[in-house]
Design a protein around this nucleic acid. Structure first.
Lengths: 221, 221
DNA sequence: TTCTCTAAAATTGTATACGATATTTTCAAT
DNA sequence: ATTGAAAATATCGTATACAATTTTAGAGAA
């Protein structure tokens, strides 16, 4: 793996795992020092992260971890609700015992990470479950998009998630695996849709009063 | 608009309009000379174009216009077939006479460009019709994804399109607008699905024998 | 203390330098 | 004429330099 790619993944991981919270600044000097490369390489990955909406770069002010707006959060979840259930029929064509075992192992890990309160692992595994499922559909273009949406969802949880609700409380992913084993496309689709809607509704999408205070409207004549 | 963004759009436009055909090399020196900026700025936009799959960057060999594989072409069209019809119900909620007129004007322009054999305009307008429609759904995240897929579709047409089939022969986009005016979601969805499938089936997805010849398999023991 | 203004430090944006790698050209030998 | 090797050229990857801008720190006045 190229060095750039390596740096990219490390920073992305830190953001997705909430080590770098929304709003955190990412000065190029410190990063270049930390990774032992010049600012050139750092700028390259920051620009990539900005394109992917994990950071925001403001001219002359550098990069900071993106704080997704409520609209963005809503749209990301809506996108997943629209696409992920639709992938299930195609995915089922590739579903066999090998896959079933693989995903059950993942779900198991997830459960353990959650009960051990390993937040970082829990976040990673939850996202991974979804996008590996998407990958199984065989459409790499869509799977990559879903992967991005899953990671952005992790960022959303950092901003709007209720404490401890990294995953979903409505049972767990093994329920979906049962339906897939039964090759019940309809029920599996319905479950996925419900699952994502549940996550969306669990977000606290309330205006954070601290930012974007419109003093003009508040106090202006 | 920032200067980088400007350069980005100009190069993207040249690629999408088939001014720069798949495989064309993009030497940083020439571009920096042409745009009057240093290689730094050029590299920035080339890296962005690479992330968006419009160009491919090979280590120490620079960038060239991407030649989408058959698999990639197929997946992009499949993604559009999956998503775009699904956007229609949401889109219809925002459909009114203003929009109808706007899109009819666009369809008209399209027809004119096509009959005048203005390939570049024709390509742009066809793509724009689709992603502006997606934008109307209100979901910017999805609309942006569709926009990218539309542009990549233009690149696909450059590689696999039958001569003169930039658009779709099955009538034209005004048919869809009629259905939208009637608020007939079902028929509009069906039309969109058919439209995209037609485009996909019109591609000549045959192995190009010139490249990737496996001499080992051919002649090796 | 609290505010404002100014100087210092930090940080970013862009160009350039230079070693490393790839490509092309040249030219001799078969 | 074709092949192959070697030099010359072109191109890329990375670090660095420097001007422009922002942020921070500090001194003085109310």
């Amino acid at each position: 793996m190229s060095n750039d790619e390596n740096i990219y993944r490390q920073i992305l991981r830190a953001i997705v795992e909430h080590q770098l919270p929304p709003g955190a600044r990412l000065p190029e000097d410190r990063l270049s020092e930390a990774f032992g490369v010049s600012r050139t390489g750092i700028r390259k990955v920051l620009q990539r992260l900005a394109l992917e909406h994990f950071v925001v770069i403001e001219k002359n002010k550098g990069a900071q971890v993106n704080r997704p707006s409520e609209a963005e959060a809503s749209e990301i979840l809506d996108s997943r609700i629209l696409i992920e259930p639709q992938l299930i029929p195609t995915l089922l064509m590739h579903w066999d015992e090998t896959q079933s075992k693989r995903f059950r192992a993942m779900a198991q890990e997830e459960k353990q990470a959650e009960s051990a309160n390993l937040l970082a692992d829990s976040i990673q595994l939850t996202a991974r479950f979804h996008y590996e499922l998407a990958t199984l559909s065989g459409n790499k273009v869509l799977a990559h998009f879903i992967e991005q949406l899953c990671y952005r969802s992790s960022l959303i949880l950092a901003a709007y998630g209720t404490r401890g609700s990294v995953g979903c409380e409505c049972g767990d992913h093994t329920q979906l695996l049962d339906l897939l084993d039964q090759k019940d496309a309809d029920k599996a689709q319905h479950w996925m849709s419900h699952h994502l809607k549940h996550i969306k509704s669990s977000l606290i999408l309330e205006s954070k009063p601290e930012e974007n205070i419109d003093f003009q409207r508040l106090f202006g004549r």
